[in-house]
Design a protein around this nucleic acid. Structure first.
Length: 465
RNA sequence: UCCUCUUUAGCUCAGUUGGUUAGAGCACCUGACUGUUAAUCAGGGGGUCCUAGGUUCAAGUCCUAGAAGAGGAGCCA
């Protein structure tokens, strides 16, 4: 007998030929019906849409049909026919069904009805089988693919920066220690401090908080590069926008000034959102209907409008003039708080905003200093709902100026020797930025909690699965 | 880390001023129904009221401590 090939449900629904014999495999979403006919909604993850399998009950073993309930995995042979019922174009008239795995209805935690996001987080091993997580995971994949495609098409090289690092220089946040020492009996030096020279790397090591500094090294050789990998922050942040383990995209470009950097960031974000609209519309329609009925309009709005660009100084002027009580005072030199950023994006400009030229005191040591001596060429891209989605800057390429900042900010020069050498030998103007991948997926899916756009969220007090 | 709220059936929740045997919808089980669309209809089973201690004749309900979850803030991406 000829072995039939499984066809994905997405393909069957899109291009399935009426009258053809087909083989479909997937997980049962629901089973409905009566004594003589059963309807099975089958999903294999290739699309948010289910295919309807119609079973003439009398032709099948009664016990087999009984076991085909929500969560079961089956293989279906049958004929693809036009559906007489409304709601679907085609359906499979089953001729034989193989049960791969039953799912005991009394203990299977997923129901046909919706569940709360909180409950689904407790069963993260099963939540990919829900419509919502299927949609989110497909969109997440599409965004990862589009990121690589965008940069590849522009001639950027994908550089793998280290995940374990000995430098703690960027100061982006608290780090996770990496060690093979026996924590119950740590080796000590004579003055009682931990003797890291006995550890695996012979010195203190941590999980990276950013690949930027290493990315700069590559950009000062390959011109245009990007990193895309996991990063780790040991901050005790309990918010819907923070994770202890998250993925970050960090392009770094030689010969780009701050304007080029902004142009790239805006074009990049619009490209990604447009890609989602062009390639994930079924999933977006579902999310738009179930969670956020302004989602698609908001995505289109971002694609169609210029991001508002203004300096920090100008933003402070606007905020100072506004008749509004702030929880945190606004004055030149203060870091802008969430309430201020939200006001600018959601009330004042009503569109994405790029703020530039922040006071140097509130920004990192590596940012290029302006001639005014007070500000640096930083840029933050602020989005509605999620706030800062991108942070970036033109980098300080002058050796003396960089060294002065490092000294001022009490960063150990000996740890930064390799970074400083790029300014000593063949330095070049260059720029870059960081995009939090989950923040992007959060915006594109309209989900409200970042724990629901990554398969296995790592947050304080949570490292299950 | 700070502030606020929440925790009762598998899930989502109600539970009055502290008072008899703890309530609903959905899910599940049984039955009915020859084309369903989160199918429908009838019946049934199902409880460590988050944990520990306390007040009281009596605690799901009041008090204290703790745990977990959520929202806001800070930190940031």
């Amino acid at each position: 007998m000829e072995e039939k090939k499984r066809v994905k449900i997405k393909e069957l629904l899109l291009n399935g030929q009426i009258g053809s014999d087909v083989l479909a495999k997937g997980w049962v979403r629901t089973r409905r019906g009566n004594k003589s006919v059963a309807f099975i909604a089958l999903n294999d993850g290739s699309t948010i849409n289910n295919i309807q399998v119609v079973v003439d009950v009398e032709k099948f073993d009664e016990n087999l049909i009984k076991d085909i309930n929500t969560g079961a995995c089956i293989s279906v042979n049958g004929k693809l026919v036009e559906s007489p019922g409304s709601g679907q174009r085609v359906e499979i008239q089953a001729t034989s069904i193989e049960l791969y795995g039953a799912a005991d209805a009394t203990t299977y935690p997923l129901q046909k009805k919706g569940h709360s996001m909180e409950f689904l987080r407790e069963i993260a091993h099963l939540r990919p089988r829900t419509n919502t997580f299927g949609a989110v995971l497909r969109i997440r994949h599409a965004m990862a693919y589009a990121i690589h495609k965008y940069f590849n098409d522009k001639g950027f090289y994908y550089v793998h920066t280290p995940i374990i690092t000995a430098s703690d220089a960027e100061g982006a946040g608290a780090m996770f220690k990496v060690t093979t020492l026996d924590v119950n009996s740590l080796p000590r030096t004579e003055d009682g401090k931990i003797n890291w020279s006995e550890d695996f790397f012979g010195k203190e090591a941590n999980l990276t908080v950013s690949g930027q500094l290493e990315g700069e090294l590559a950009a000062l050789a390959l011109s245009e590069i990007y990193t895309f990998g996991p990063t780790f922050r040991a901050e005790n942040s309990n918010t819907p926008r923070h994770l202890a383990e998250f993925w970050m995209i960090e392009p770094e470009m030689a010969f780009y000034d701050i304007i080029d950097n902004m142009n790239l960031a805006e074009d990049f974000l619009k490209y990604l959102i447009r890609y989602a609209l062009d390639n994930c519309i079924d999933d977006l329609d579902f999310l738009n209907k179930m969670y956020d009925n302004e989602l698609i309009d908001r995505l289109k709005f971002v694609v169609d409008n210029h991001f508002e660009r203004l300096t920090y100084t100008k933003a402070v002027e606007i905020l100072e003039k506004v008749e509004q009580k702030w929880e945190f005072p606004v004055f030149w030199g203060a870091d802008l708080q969430a309430e201020h950023e939200r006001f600018l994006v959601e009330k004042h400009f009503k569109k994405p905003v790029i703020l530039t030229d922040y006071p140097k005191e509130i920004k990192s040591f590596y940012m290029k200093q302006n001639e005014d001596g007070k500000t640096v060429r930083a840029m933050d891209v602020l989005f509605p709902k999620i706030g800062e989605i991108i942070g970036g800057s033109q980098r300080e390429e002058g050796y003396e100026k960089l060294l002065a900042r490092i000294t001022e900010m009490h960063i150990p020069e000996k740890d930064m020797w390799w970074y400083l050498e790029t300014r000593k030998f063949g330095t070049a103007p260059h720029s870059g930025f960081g995009l939090g991948f989950e923040r992007l997926v959060l915006f594109v899916t309209g989900m409200s909690n970042i724990r629901d756009v990554i398969p296995f969220p790592r947050t304080p007090k949570n490292c299950e699965f």
